[in-house]
Write a protein that binds this DNA or RNA. Structure first.
Lengths: 337, 337
DNA sequence: CTGAAAGCGCTAACAA
DNA sequence: TTGTTAGCGCTTTCAG
């Protein structure tokens, strides 16, 4: 049997409450006893029982992280960062992949509540599930949102400026001389923000927005290919593409290639996220970089702050994305007349 | 305050033990009372408290999964599969990335014990840490190993036949006409098994093994590039490369390209794992496929079996890998004289 | 500075 | 079929 606080107390010749105090660094305990208790804890390899601690109303030292898909390197990177930052302050993380399914999100949130996690980091962003997030917040469970935002709720968020991201991606293309720029976006808030940035850039260059060049697609390889197909099967395909994440961008590149076109000679492509994928493909992908490691770290910080001091003021941390120019973009093949 | 079993009992006009029995489907309870209790549980949105359940000596319904790196799509896929299969039977998963660091593995195992997980799936494979795994097993915590094996311990494992994997990858290259085939492998047990397969294939074709063509590299892009550099800076570079995972294969492809060579015209490359990366790169990577989804599912099954019936006989599930031929391999450019 | 005792929410004998 | 009761391991007043 694993040693309990009783075993430690007995062996050290003190009461369990003394041990408890030493354990939590609370109350005033004589240096001598303290040392003795620590010694016994080592000897017995004592590990406090988390379940008991949790039951007594304290923390579980577990936090939940809800993402859409672990197979998307962007979310894998976020998760890894969160997990690693959390571990450094002795928190474990339960990672949940919702597969972009609001119902699963609901299930997971329930699971995490049962598990009595001390806080939840939500990085899955649906339009239709804001009520879920609200419910969690109303139950006073600390929450931090990553890469999304719910305007009408007071909640900590860490995100990047998606609008700016879309803007700089599009400007890059415009500066290269492209006029007809297609867009493939995920049907998420942040995706549409990026599209707004795209539109704004076009405005600035006095180029009318052609809505038919904007298509929405789920974030999977298959869906991305389909969307790209739609765009590049037109009689007047765009000369450049802005995809709101790397996965979509790369799926599109495949389709473009299948059609016998070259990247970037015939079509320039810029992605978003700067995941591991971006510099693994050939040509390497020009993309808008999100500081995923930072974002994870920031999220953990905000969450801990909430956990430790219930009534802290809500914050929005907004990081600025950067354009990383690589091989997938270049001037258009032939300038449209 | 969240409703407890007492609230439910009171509102339903029964005792808490009756509620408990209904909750766990134990004992004989009248249909009427049962229905009433269920109804009250809905009304109150009652969620049993996991910590209390855990404390009472039952399961925590949490399991741990230890992997080297979530940024490697292979492990992300494994984790996702485990997590999703676990969830279906109401288990949460704590995912831990050790970053290939045995010390962190030790920390994590400690964390998971404290957390009183019901079982642990270990997919990080070091040579030097078998004692850690042994310790866990001795503490009677259910364990399943994925993609590794510790011959001198009785433990459930699910893995693929790495030897066969290396064999078929190499044979493919040999059949295409390659004679000088380089290898980049991770310094792990499974990596060396794959190399054994490679050697065996060469033997079969009566080609002597040139040890200098076999280099070992950590599984990261940077390390992979370095290893590839070593191989392709030789005066007599190989005409084909077998990398023991996709990440290494793709890093190598980049290096090959940097040197002005073409894949597969000048150098053929075959990878291992068949991760999402393999069909995202261009040319798509010929690779040995590991059924990651299956592996995760099998691992969860084995673990549950152990959890539910302590004294079950240990099993080794060995899956057979398959070669997926794509664009990165072809006949050698010029046949060596 | 240290200890006794009352729970936290739930399960599991044992009674009724 | 249902209820009573004694813990699980720990924290936390409240007394000494």
């Amino acid at each position: 049997m694993k040693p309990t606080i009783y075993d430690v107390a007995e062996r050290a010749g003190v009461s369990i409450s003394t041990v408890s105090k030493v354990l939590n660094g609370r109350g005033k305990i004589g240096e001598a006893t303290k040392a003795r208790i620590f010694k016994v804890m080592k000897e017995l390899q004592y590990q406090p029982n988390n379940a008991a601690m949790a039951l007594t109303g304290k923390s579980t030292y577990v936090l939940g992280i809800v993402i859409p898909d672990l197979n998307n390197p962007f979310f894998a990177a976020i998760s890894k960062s969160v997990e690693s930052n959390a571990r450094q302050v002795h928190y474990s993380s339960i990672i949940c992949s919702t597969d972009y399914n609001p119902q699963r999100e609901e299930e997971y949130l329930g699971l995490l509540k049962r598990q009595m996690v001390d806080g939840i980091i939500i990085a899955s962003g649906f339009q239709e599930d804001t009520h879920l997030v609200k419910m969690v917040i109303e139950e006073e469970i600390p929450v931090v949102l990553i890469a999304r935002d719910i305007p009408d709720i007071l909640v900590d968020t860490v995100s990047i400026d998606d609008f700016i991201g879309g803007l700089i991606a599009t400007k890059h293309l415009l500066e290269l001389g492209h006029q007809r720029i297609g867009v493939i976006t995920e049907p998420l808030k942040c995706g549409w923000e990026r599209v707004r940035g795209y539109q704004s850039a076009l405005h600035e260059w006095s180029i009318p927005v052609d809505e038919s060049l904007i298509v929405s697609s789920e974030s999977s390889i298959e869906a991305g290919r389909e969307a790209a197909n739609k765009l590049f099967s037109r009689v007047d395909p765009p000369t450049a593409l802005f995809a709101t994440n790397d996965l979509l961008a790369i799926s599109a590149i495949q389709v473009i290639r299948d059609k016998g076109l070259h990247v970037p000679e015939d079509v320039s492509v810029v992605g978003f996220d700067n995941t591991i994928l971006a510099h693994l493909v050939n040509p390497a992908l020009t993309t808008v970089s999100q500081p995923m490691t930072d974002m994870g770290a920031q999220a953990v910080n905000l969450l801990l702050e909430q956990i430790r001091n219930k009534e802290h003021t809500r914050k929005r941390v907004i990081l600025i994305p950067e354009l990383v120019v690589r091989g997938s973009t270049g001037p258009p093949h032939k300038v449209p007349q």
